[in-house]
Design a protein around this nucleic acid. Sequence first.
DNA 1: CCTTGACCTTCGAGTAACTCGAAGGTTTAC
DNA 2: GTAAACCTTCGAGTTACTCGAAGGTCAAGG
Lengths: 133, 133
Amino acid sequence: MRISQVAAAAGMNPATLRYYESVGVLPEPARSASGYRRYGEEDVALIRFVRRLRALRLPLDDIKQIVDLRRRGEAPCAVVRSAMRREVVAVDERILELTRVRTELETLIAESDAVDDEWPESCVCHVVERSKP
Amino acid sequence: MRISQVAAAAGMNPATLRYYESVGVLPEPARSASGYRRYGEEDVALIRFVRRLRALRLPLDDIKQIVDLRRRGEAPCAVVRSAMRREVVAVDERILELTRVRTELETLIAESDAVDDEWPESCVCHVVERSKP
DNA sequence: CCTTGACCTTCGAGTAACTCGAAGGTTTAC
DNA sequence: GTAAACCTTCGAGTTACTCGAAGGTCAAGG
């Protein structure tokens, strides 16, 4: 398979695969006589695995370690699990922060709409500037 | 005031202020004879305003436009409001996506723990690999 | 045989919003 | 007079790609 075929099979962009290879997440594949990358079915599986971990927000550095372990024949279970646990904490924090931001945006928008109804010439920036620093 | 004083007063890093200046979000301040940046109270207010918009996740490009309007004496209300409205939609999407990821991480962790209890030698990666592509 | 189009290659730069380090000048206090 | 704590600019690093340029390869059609 050539790069765009393996990419399509794994649901990825060819450029992303080259990038993953360049940072060591994916191994260097065999090359054809003219220098084209050649992939097999096992590469599709590996790339899907990587894509899955990325979809779970694991950073490429973690994924690189996991893939390295896998290639050395070691089961990367513990690493995957602790990465997932760390990630769930990070995701929770992120959700909390975004929820706070969302609430505040809503409040400001509602206030600005109310002000606008009363005095169409008044300014929302007033609201932004007056709100807690 | 020197840069680290105005930064402290506005709750920011001096390096960030230099960066904001370099990208045109903040105006170039006056300089002392030896080239040090000199700020006044009105700068503290402006920097707090910017910090506030950043805390609301508005991108620097939007903030730049808003600050520009403000400096030209125009009320940036409409821009602020539409930026906030756009942002609340983006934040909602982000929260939804993170919630999905969180649920899936939780599921995988729970499954992997269950598997681990039954067969301590089995591997969580199995779970990751088998789960929907 | 030649061309056309769709591939492929590498390399460098661009994205967002900072953050850090190096190399060097200034100010303040002791 | 000198040391600490500032300040300056510039360039590079961060994360995870994405895009464009310049050029090589391959299969099909005329």
